[in-house]
Nucleic acid binder design. Structure first.
Lengths: 228, 228, 228, 228
DNA sequence: GATGAATGAGCGTTCATTCAT
DNA sequence: CATGAATGAACGCTCATTCAT
């Protein structure tokens, strides 16, 4: 049955946006972006849909955003939405992946030449807050707990929060290898704790209009103390 | 808005369970439980509904649980649901409050005679994990992000996560006053960070089947280090 | 998954209309039809829906009839439709079953005191055409090939055409036992052939406005000759 | 209505395959097939579409087959479908016509030198079953009731079942003229009855895995008896 | 002639909530 | 106080058809 469904589903769907390597990484393989023809139209539609989806998911949240809202906001027909996404959840996850990729780029840029743990943590937080300032609400929306969204099926999808948690974990492990993090720290667990802390702390800070720089410093101080 | 809603409801709405004094205060005022009469029936219905709601919210999540499911699971008529709750969200928040109160009691018991910050953090975490073990899934469900639930309107209702964050903040402030927490720590922010860390870390631990005791110790160590 | 769905489906659905035994059978067990209360409302809604469904399935056919058309025609809300039927196909099958039961009653009445094969075939056809006259289009609609309707799932449902074919087969077997049908006739196959012939022949007769009585006689003559 | 539709179509629409003279006449006029050039491409596309349509209509049925599925299966662009067919129903009818023509050829071959009614009926049935064996499911699909397909509009198009019924009728009339069929038989009606019987009986036989030869003989015996 | 992305009316269905009993 | 049948706006999604390239 699922096969049949898959068979009858429109082709499209190159999956969730190809990760862009540019930014910190100078030499990016140029994916052949067609300048004309149907493929160009297709890409344009997808871009319009992604932008509209981001806008609406951020503004209204997942459940208050309907596929037809996204289509209208994008200026394409309702059916076009389903030409590019399997369903609403697929669209949301694509949005989350996109945000994750963008943030990765920013953080990579911030980490380019840091040496100490203090700097690294500070720069990571700065990267996150910079992204949040430029893209208000995007991280909060992208971090939405997927288990609340799905109706029991696709719990196996990797959610951005996990991806970032593991990223922090790997980073901390490197730092630990260099002696910057105490040897008794479970770096993977710490990665998860930090992401959780950032999510909740960020929400608190933005809700209560806290000063960004002092929040960053306060958080960095706590994290660094915990890890050293 | 909430006023308007309250006005719409005729029935005597016990509303959201009487709050224990917040935070870590263990003793909740005992409401007088009638032994007979219609009031008893009413309370029984409510109890059955609350139990059913908890079961279903935990098993299926908020969106996959319909008021009708709760009523059926409770063995009462569908209309009875709206005799006890303004709407579905009200019911969910009542569930969250109930869980919060139960957890408060447990934590209070754990804190009865601790003296040091180390012990306090450790015992708090032990309390949380004990509750999680006895009530699997309840905390995760109760901590569900409210913004994901509402359809854009009622973001003003207090969510358990904030309540606990503030509780931790107050507790840390007390500890700071006694000199157990470094004076440069923003205790409110730290409270939020810790709750966020616990949420994400707890999910990680339960998902990956980590040993409870060592997780608690690892988390406690990190928190204490950060705060001292 | 199907379990889950079943669990979340509304109760209702006593299945396809209880066969009415009255008509030829004098002593019918009186099912307790409630005269008041919600059960009565429920029954009334179902009856209104069944009548509307019959009207529309006959007038427009299966695919051109939408559940909401049936609801509107019945004068009930759209949701009420799904309180009484799992889905559109379920409603159509209930309609088919109802028609089958009604026809059974009529045919049974026609067969009450026939002795010869000639009379039996003639009376059966008279019963069928009488029903068709009183309920124009109903048989044609009810005989709609189910395989054309379903989307590949529930092919195991017994379709009216099969039910009638088997009925004819049994009847012919009885007649064969009494020596009224040639011993070399495969009565089951003959049952199917006759139903197929009636369906196609009936359509032809009604389309070309043939005289009913002479058509019946012509068909009866052919059937009897084939069987003797 | 068909005129209007035809006007809408610019392309030179070969339309429904040139009909062989109807009924049992075997020889169809040979359309000149171009060996090269754009006309050849056109014919190739059409052939690919027809083959794909047959495969899918047989496998999935009319409603579960989308024009896009046919195009993809045929390996041509989706738009090409509408270069060759007015709409989906037009394509289905073309498929039915094609099957009818093929069957006509086979039956004509079977009838080449029969003399008696018994032989004729037997050979016709043999032709039908031979075709069914070589093209499983095609007849069942082609015989799909048109009224179930259309959404209320185009009931005026000729359906294969009628075409075959009339063919049988003409054949029986010839036989009647030669004295092989009883003079009191309404040959047109009998033609319809036989096609109906074959359809229903064939379905029964294939569903229950009946032996082909004995089924043919049983059916032939009944038909011949009825007609003599 | 061929393409395939785009279209949007319309589909079948759900579910939070109401209200007559 | 409790009931549960009824409601209908709104949902996510489909697909026969069009048209710019």
């Amino acid at each position: 049955m699922m096969m049949e469904k898959a068979e009858r589903t429109e082709a499209g769907q190159t999956g969730h946006v190809a990760r862009s390597d540019d930014g910190a990484n100078p030499i990016a393989p140029q994916p052949d972006i067609p300048e004309t023809g149907p493929a160009k139209r297709r890409l344009e539609s997808r871009r319009k849909l992604m932008e509209a989806a981001r806008r609406l998911f951020v503004e209204r949240g997942y459940h208050a955003t309907r596929p037809q809202d996204i289509s209208r906001e994008a200026g394409v027909g309702h059916g076009t939405f389903y030409l590019h996404f399997d369903d609403k959840l697929d669209c949301f996850l694509a949005f989350g992946d996109e945000a994750a990729s963008e943030l990765d780029v920013i953080i990579a840029a911030h980490l380019v030449s840091v040496q100490t743990l203090d700097d690294a943590v500070l720069e990571m937080l700065r990267g996150i807050f910079e992204y949040s300032r430029k893209n208000p609400g995007v991280l909060a929306a992208a971090l939405t707990d997927i288990s609340v969204l799905s109706t029991g099926e696709e719990v196996d999808r990797v959610v951005p929060a996990d991806r970032w948690s593991l990223g922090w974990g790997r980073f901390l492990a490197e730092m630990q290898a260099k002696g910057h993090v105490a040897p008794d720290v479970d770096t993977t667990l710490a990665g998860y704790l930090i992401v959780g802390a950032i999510r909740q702390g960020g929400a608190y800070a933005s809700l209560n209009g806290l000063d960004r720089d002092s929040t960053i410093e306060a958080m960095a101080k706590l994290f660094v103390r915990a890890l050293k």
